[in-house]
């Protein structure tokens, strides 16, 4: 294994054990490199969230991992096979090495306890040696980093706007300086401006802390802009994986082309994202910034 890789997922399959069984993720093999943003794109129900949950082993019955492995290559040089960990090891691994930002900022925070308490939860579980005072200071510092402000520690989720809640979630995901952050549609429920701010923040934070991101969304244009590499998923399989530029300029798979064609460009015409060979690189840049 090269030290450049952070996560190696091989032949990963998940099926929902219902009648008839649904194979949500089929034979997915993918690597996440250290420090990169890997976009995972695909239509609703294509298995992208199931794959992300599967990597974290967060799936609940009836979902079962039927085959494959996910190996995390720790900074220390140790390889951790996520599938073979017992409960205690798994709990220690979660959030410490790989954290998550969830889709619905509205529901991802417990409505009846303060956001401070929810941040400090992480520390009291993973950093029991630190004092409560340090936990609180650290939680406040995190809120300062994401621009919510440490004064909000005693606020309840319902007192914050959607964008602020998502920032709180990002602060929480940052808490233990994980090497991997899985973001499941972190900006889907937000309006375009707030979405922009959050995305800028994510890329700033990534530059500062150097974590890798698996960014899940159905919004391919957005991925084209922020990701290093993009994997396109359909019906549980990865149909194409390439760098953002290659995927945009030269989509090989038919489905990728269709996906690109389904988003209107800035001028409102459908298919503005389908690259015709004659177009200049300058045009391409202007098209990409659309969300």
């Amino acid at each position: 294994m090269t030290t450049d890789d952070l996560l190696t997922v091989s032949q990963f399959s998940v099926s929902y054990d219902v009648n008839p069984p649904v194979e949500a993720v089929r034979d997915v093999s993918i690597t996440v490199r250290r420090g990169e943003i890997l976009g995972l794109a695909g239509e609703s129900g294509c298995g992208k969230t199931t794959l992300a949950y599967g990597i974290q082993r967060l799936l609940k019955p009836p979902a079962v991992i039927t085959s494959g492995s996910a190996v995390f290559h720790d900074e220390s040089g140790e390889d951790i096979d996520i599938n073979t960990m017992d409960d205690v090891q798994l709990r220690a691994f979660r959030w410490e090495k790989a954290s998550m930002v969830f889709q619905g900022a509205m529901n991802a925070l417990n409505p009846i306890i303060t956001i401070g308490a929810q941040l400090q939860d992480v520390f009291s579980t993973h950093r029991p040696a630190m004092s409560r005072r340090e936990h609180r200071l650290e939680a406040g510092r995190l809120l300062d980093i994401v621009g919510v402000g440490s004064g909000r520690l005693r606020s309840y989720p319902h007192e914050l706007s959607g964008g602020m809640r998502q920032r709180v979630m990002i602060a929480m995901a940052l808490a233990l300086k994980p090497q991997l952050m899985i973001m499941d549609e972190p900006t889907t429920a937000l309006d375009v401006l707030v979405q922009r701010e959050i995305l800028d923040q994510i890329s700033d934070l990534r530059k500062e802390f150097g974590f890798s991101v698996i960014f899940i969304t159905h919004d391919l244009p957005l991925l084209l802009e922020i990701s290093d590499r993009i994997a396109v998923m359909r019906e549980g399989r990865i149909v194409e994986i390439d760098t953002a530029r290659n995927l945009y300029e030269n989509p090989r798979h038919d489905y990728t082309r269709r996906l690109l064609a389904s988003f209107p460009s800035l001028t409102g015409e459908r298919g503005g994202f389908v690259r015709r060979p004659s177009e200049s690189a300058l045009d391409a840049e202007s098209g990409v910034t659309v969300q």
């Binding site: 974290q56 967060l58 798994l90 709990r91 220690a92 691994f93 979660r94 959030w95 410490e96 954290s99 998550m100 969830f102 889709q103 619905g104 529901n107 991802a108 925070l109 417990n110 409505p111 306890i113 939860d121 992480v122 579980t125 993973h126 979630m169 929480m172």
Partner: peptide, 22 residues
């Protein structure tokens, strides 16, 4: 089925804590 319970589990909290607090 609420997201915040999944978040609590993803945070690696002990099951007792997830059960009671969340």
């Amino acid at each position: 089925d609420e997201d915040y319970v999944t978040v609590a589990q993803a945070k690696g909290l002990r099951p007792v804590r997830v059960l009671i607090n969340y």
